[in-house]
Amino acid sequence: MTLASAQPGDLVAEYQTGPIPREQLALYAEASGDSNPLHLDPAFAQKAGFGDVIVHGMLGMALLGRLLSTQFAAFTLTRFDARFIAVLPVGASLRCTATLAAATADGWTLALEAFDSSGKPIIVGTAAVKNPS
């Protein structure tokens, strides 16, 4: 579906990740510089009240952002925001969706959501895209 023909509320893109393994958290820590042990050290995560290490919120946002990079590569992204609603344990997967929220004078606003396998929202956000100038 193209954005130009979509109506507000239409699902315009979706993407299912595989399970997010421990190794990916280590790789993301190295690539992003976020070495908080909450994402790397199970003993530390347990002291913080979690059963095991948790996925970096920013890795979840990056996976949500894959929708934009892959499905809307022809557009210019002007804004991308996210709220981290719940933590995602290592080994879980995400289903990412983009719904058209509004067509504006200079582009489109997309409502973005990432759910775990039970359908619980993990991340909600928005993105604004426009035609390249």
């Binding site: 990916q24 190295e30 690539a31 510089g33 976020d34 890795l59 952002g65 991308f80």
Partner: peptide, 27 residues
């Protein structure tokens, strides 16, 4: 490295992906 970490397998890219700004500011 960042693309690999987020599971993006579209090949090498000259332009950084959207959330790469976080890695820049986190230096």
């Amino acid at each position: 490295l960042f693309l690999k970490a987020i599971g993006a397998d579209d090949g090498p890219q000259d332009v950084a992906p959207p959330t790469f700004m976080k890695a820049v500011e986190g230096e």
